[in-house]
Design a protein around this nucleic acid. Structure first.
Length: 698
DNA sequence: AACCCTCGAGGTCA
DNA sequence: CTCGAGGGTT
């Protein structure tokens, strides 16, 4: 009752604010005659957005922010995958195929005699996509995204002939069919011819054309792009899939009405797999579409389940990649870039050369030793390939083409950006110098400062739209933004200044206002993002979450860290966090002790508000839980049980404590079971665990 | 050995 | 966004 009253009131207010904002927008954009100050306008917008945050249903109802000015509507809706879409491990040589087979056999405890079947199929070079069917009808389609959450492209796949709207023949109630969206060579050539005729830019290769076509906001454009699809995998299926082998699944997909790749075969052992690999490789050029290797999968689905996953890749499948295409080019220059942490990274500037379908003109050289190891000199002719068909890489030089006057490259010992000494720290454990040479001018180096700011604004940190690389460099150079806190005072200073940002070249009233709005929208930030944004060495996203979870508030972290001298109790407190060791703890302590950082932090904290940590993305009922296995397990080995739990996002511990969420007790469980009961921790048996894990895994 | 961090290139859509 | 290398930590 009360709640619906609140909502009604909020809705009325929401609408009123929306109209008011729209009126101001009209006055501003169309009539160029604002009737309120920027600050008042921003305040209106903030109230509007706060309402939507409090009552999310308001944001879903039409009218609203999408139309008015800055609120950056997300391009595609997000879809969480019921079962994560994982990637595959890669191998590049024949030997590694044997290693893979041996690894699988060992994990399954198979003796030398037992037969083990794999499937081998071409690895299509397109983009993977998950299609959800309910009662046989296509209900949604999503790109892979980060594997957990993808983009909703349902409207766009409708036009792909290979993707049926309706499954034929006995489909399960619910099923995610997964496969590859790709574009054939012929269609790619025709599309580029049309692009050229229309004076539009050409696509670099079929993969990019397919990706660009699928990710169109306007499905009508996608419909004009001839995309194709091969099915090869599945996510959730309810009830279970009507097959017990990978090859059987391919037949099922075919019966559903999908195309499956005709070169898929069952192979027995490494030799058989390699023969098929080389067969596919020899036919690569005549297939009519791009492939970049062969995927091997354990054929038996029950064995797949037992093998489970390591990190984000299944243990039962692997991609055997073709050797990357190579080319030669001339290295004209070695440029030294200075990163956020002061690392000097050499980058090769090359005469542009086409490799694997794109034009390459830059390649990283990684570090000083790498250059010396390969004896790369300016003026050398070098061999370039794209690692994994993506990253340009210099394999080595062609010595006979070296100019007579080429001398070994002298890696600079001073920072090119600020002139400070650039040193290689000595690893205290090995006594060896680090690979990286670092600029020592942390507080004076403009390159480091710009990179730090960039990191601060980046997507997983403060996520400030409109402050991209170029803008940051620009504002830094103008002296308008030198520290993170400056970002949040920019609007106010601009108002009082005579030289307005809106008058700068490349800016206008609209872009200046959008920028200020984007900054305002980020005055509140989750604790983990805040910690990550600080750019402390060794503290990336994961360690930021660990710190946030452990300390819960920024004050608590800061108080501990600033007293965390080596050997102190405070240092130990940080060190005790799971996943954080001496080096990370030291880096954290060092950061907070540094007076310059203290001042920068105080200034920043005066501008922003830190919210509790964000919810972590999860993948099921046991995600994020700490579980303990005890006793003798009957249906799986300890390794398998552990792998299964971990792939579901659980943390497996060896001893029971207050922090344990769940104990899985096998036969003859002893002291751990007793302890679990004492502490009141939930205890289940092996079958219950399998049911739970099965439900979570789909 | 598995994971994390940092850095890098190139392309595409808003 | 995608991909990967290299080096480091746990």
């Amino acid at each position: 009752m009360k709640k619906s009253d609140d909502l009604a009131r909020a809705r009325a207010q929401h609408q009123k604010l929306g109209e008011e904002i729209a009126a101001h927008d009209r006055a501003y954009y169309q009539e160029d005659a604002p009737v309120v100050s920027d600050a008042d306008y921003d305040a209106l917008r903030r109230r509007y957005e706060a309402l939507e945050k409090q009552f999310p249903e308001l944001a879903d109802e039409e009218s609203l922010s999408r139309k008015v000015g800055a609120a950056p509507a997300e391009k595609f809706a997000k879809v969480a995958h019921a079962v994560p879409m994982l990637s595959l491990g890669n191998i590049f040589s024949d030997d590694e195929v044997e290693d893979f087979v041996a690894r699988v056999r060992r994990f399954l405890g198979l003796g030398g005699e037992a037969e083990l079947a794999f499937t081998a199929e071409p690895k299509i070079d397109g983009l993977s996509c998950s299609l959800r069917y309910e009662k046989g009808l296509l209900v949604s389609a999503a790109t892979r995204g980060d594997g957990l959450v993808g983009e909703d492209v349902t409207a766009n796949v409708g036009a792909i002939d290979d993707i049926p709207e309706k499954l034929s023949g006995g489909a399960p109630e619910v099923i995610d069919v997964r496969g590859e969206v790709y574009m054939s060579h012929a269609d790619f050539a025709a599309l580029n011819a049309r692009q050229a005729a229309a004076d539009k830019p050409l696509f670099a290769n079929p993969r990019n054309a397919a990706a660009g076509s699928l990710r169109q906001l306007d499905p009508a454009i996608t419909a004009q792009r001839p995309l194709k699809f091969f099915a090869y995998a599945w996510g959730a299926a309810e009830p279970d899939m009507p097959a017990d082998s990978q090859m059987g699944m391919m037949a099922v997909f075919h019966a559903f009405g999908f195309k499956v790749n005709p070169m898929t075969r069952v192979c027995y052992g490494a030799r058989d797999m390699l023969a098929h690999f080389h067969d596919i490789e020899s036919r690569r050029a005549s297939l009519g579409y791009d492939i970049d290797g062969v995927v091997y999968k354990v054929n038996d689905l029950a064995l797949q389940r037992r093998l489970g996953f390591v990190a984000r890749a299944p243990r039962w499948a692997i991609a055997h990649k073709f050797p990357a295409e190579r080319a030669t080019s001339v290295l004209r220059e070695i440029e030294i870039q200075v990163g956020r942490t002061g690392v000097l990274t050499p980058v090769a500037r090359l005469d542009p050369v086409t490799v694997g379908g794109v034009v390459v003109s830059n390649a990283t050289l990684h570090n000083e030793d790498e250059i010396a190891r390969k004896d790369i000199r300016i003026g050398d002719t070098v061999i370039v390939q794209r690692a994994g068909d993506v990253i340009p890489q210099i394999l080595g030089v062609v010595p006979e083409k070296r100019p007579d006057d080429a001398s070994p490259y002298q890696f600079p010992h001073v920072c090119p950006a600020c002139g400070s000494a650039a040193l290689r720290e000595i690893d205290p454990k090995t006594g060896e110098p680090e690979a990286a040479r670092r600029c020592t001018g942390a507080l004076v180096c403009p390159a480091q400062a710009v990179e730090k700011l960039r990191h601060f604004c980046s997507r997983n940190a403060f996520d400030i739209e409109g402050l991209g690389d170029k803008q940051i460099a620009f504002f830094y150079e103008k002296g308008l933004i030198r520290t993170p806190a400056d970002i949040f005072t920019l609007s106010e200073r601009d108002r009082q200044s005579l030289t307005k940002i809106e008058n700068f070249e490349g800016f206008g009233k609209v872009s200046a206002r959008n920028l200020f709005a984007a900054i305002e929208a980020r005055r509140e930030v989750a604790l983990n993002r805040f910690i990550f944004a600080l750019g402390i060495r060794h503290v990336g996203e994961t360690n930021a979450i660990r710190l946030a979870r452990s300390f819960e508030t920024f004050d608590a972290l800061r108080e501990t860290a600033r007293h965390a001298a080596p050997g102190s109790e405070a240092r130990q407190r940080i060190n005790d966090i799971d996943g954080i060791g001496d080096v990370v703890a030291e880096a954290v302590a060092d950061f907070f002790v540094e007076p310059h950082n203290e001042r920068a932090l105080d200034a920043l904290l005066a501008e922003v508000r830190i919210l509790p940590m964000e919810a972590v993305k999860s993948g099921g009922a046991v995600a994020g839980k700490t579980v303990v296995f005890t006793g003798a397990l009957q249906k799986m080995t300890r390794d398998e049980a552990k792998a299964m739990a971990e792939r579901l996002g659980a943390k497996v511990s060896s001893s029971v404590s207050k922090k344990t969420d769940l104990v899985i007790a096998g036969a003859e469980a002893g002291s751990k079971l007793t302890k679990a009961r004492e502490l009141g921790v939930d205890v289940i048996d092996e079958d219950a665990w399998l049911a739970l894990a099965g439900a979570a895994a789909g």
